[in-house]
């Protein structure tokens, strides 16, 4: 419950404080969002499975964001940024959907 509250607090802070995102980091934001969502749904599923571990969650979130950002950066340098972004989105998207399906099974038993 407290992490959910923290999520809401952070969301409100991001929306109302208007933090200035440096222009150089803006291309990585969409990928970072997808990676963060993947970590959040993975953590949620782990909670429902009864095997949640905060350290794993934090490390998975950070590594997801960093690696996704790095792949996009590398793609930009090589001139295939959009293709690599698509690849990251596909992989993380599939994971998000599978995790959500598992969460759904836990919550609704369906």
């Amino acid at each position: 419950m407290i992490p959910a509250l923290g999520l809401l607090v952070g969301l409100a802070a991001g929306l109302f404080l208007h933090p200035a995102v440096p222009l150089a980091l803006q291309p990585y934001l969409p990928i970072a969002v997808i990676a963060a969502l993947d970590a959040v749904f993975g953590g949620l599923r782990a909670v429902l499975d009864g095997i949640f571990n905060d350290k794993v969650f934090v490390v998975s979130f950070l590594s997801n964001v960093v690696v996704a950002g790095f792949i996009v950066f590398l793609g930009d340098q090589l001139g295939v940024g959009s293709q690599l972004s698509t690849g990251v989105v596909v992989v993380l998207g599939i994971r998000i959907f599978s995790n959500v399906a598992s969460i759904r099974r836990h919550v609704f038993r369906a």
């Binding site: 419950m1 407290i2 992490p3 959910a4 923290g6 999520l7 809401l8 607090v9 952070g10 969301l11 409100a12 802070a13 991001g14 929306l15 208007h18 933090p19 995102v21 803006q26 934001l29 969409p30 970072a32 969002v33 963060a36 970590a39 959040v40 782990a46 909670v47 009864g50 095997i51 949640f52 571990n53 905060d54 350290k55 969650f57 934090v58 979130f61």
Partner: peptide, 29 residues
């Protein structure tokens, strides 16, 4: 126990961070 507590400070900090990331990117993008 297999699962750790959900109330550890690191978890709360990261949750706030994720929320801020979502909110900030919603605005920035």
């Amino acid at each position: 126990p297999a699962a750790t507590s959900l109330h550890t400070p690191t978890l709360v900090i990261v949750a706030i961070l994720i929320g801020a990331l979502l909110g900030a990117s919603a605005l920035a993008l």
